[in-house]
């Protein structure tokens, strides 16, 4: 098998299954009644955290590719992005259904009056737009606009950490860790940009 096929037929399915592990863990905990005294909150937090982690993993693709020189890493970006969308979508559905119990008035009130929810909704909306336009055909059709839309994943990263930060009661340790990771990832890109503009000017 050549290199390309090895990635396509072996590595991709493997990573796909790996991405489902957090989901499987949660299902196992539900089945074993192992979610503690407040299972709904535990489920919602689990999916929110994994959504955020997948967003960060997606943002890590380009730095990893550049640093290791392994171009094939970029081929996992779409999968990671779709999993980010999947985990956030479940996070959102749990909120709609089990937390707000599909009460429309409560839902609307929260979206407009609770800033951390407003921010979460903005991030989710961008993720939906990206998920809907994630196929190669649409990408070709949209051209430059596609790239502009999908660059908003940086914004989604910022919104997601901000959302986490605002919803904690007092202890910001965990959102702080995510904020630092995000800053490193975004900082690296800014540095890259600055480097290329420098070399362009030089030539």
């Amino acid at each position: 098998m050549d290199h390309n096929r090895r990635i396509g037929f072996i590595l991709k399915p493997f990573v796909f299954v790996l991405c489902l592990v957090p989901f499987a863990i949660l299902v196992a905990r539900v089945v074993n009644n192992d979610l503690g005294a407040n299972p709904i909150e535990a489920m919602q937090d689990h999916f929110g955290e994994w959504g955020l982690r997948f967003i960060l993993m997606m943002l890590a693709v380009t730095p990893l590719r550049k640093l290791t020189g392994r171009v094939w890493i970029a081929r996992f970006r779409r999968m990671l992005g779709l999993f980010a969308f999947f985990y956030v979508a479940v996070h959102f559905i749990i909120w709609l259904w089990l937390d707000r119990e599909l009460r429309l008035a409560d839902i609307i009130e929260d979206i407009f009056e609770r800033p951390f929810i407003t921010i979460g909704m903005a991030a989710l909306t961008l993720l939906i737009a990206m998920a809907l336009t994630s196929t190669a055909a649409i990408r070709r059709r949209l051209g430059k606009a596609w790239q502009r839309l999908h660059n908003s994943i940086y914004l989604v990263g910022v919104l997601a950490v901000w959302h986490y930060w605002w919803q904690v009661k007092k202890d910001i340790t965990e959102p702080l860790v995510y904020a630092i990771i995000l800053s490193v990832l975004l900082g690296y890109r800014m540095w890259l940009r600055w480097q290329t503009s420098k070399t362009k000017q030089a030539s």
């Binding site: 009644n33 979610l35 407040n38 709904i40 409560d106 929260d110 609770r114 951390f116």
Partner: peptide, 21 residues
């Protein structure tokens, strides 16, 4: 400021397995 106090979740009534959640 960050959430409504109109309703509350009674702990425990949901920890009896899958369907009770």
């Amino acid at each position: 400021p960050r959430w409504s106090q109109a309703r509350e979740r009674r702990i425990g009534s949901g920890s009896g397995g899958f369907s009770s959640i």
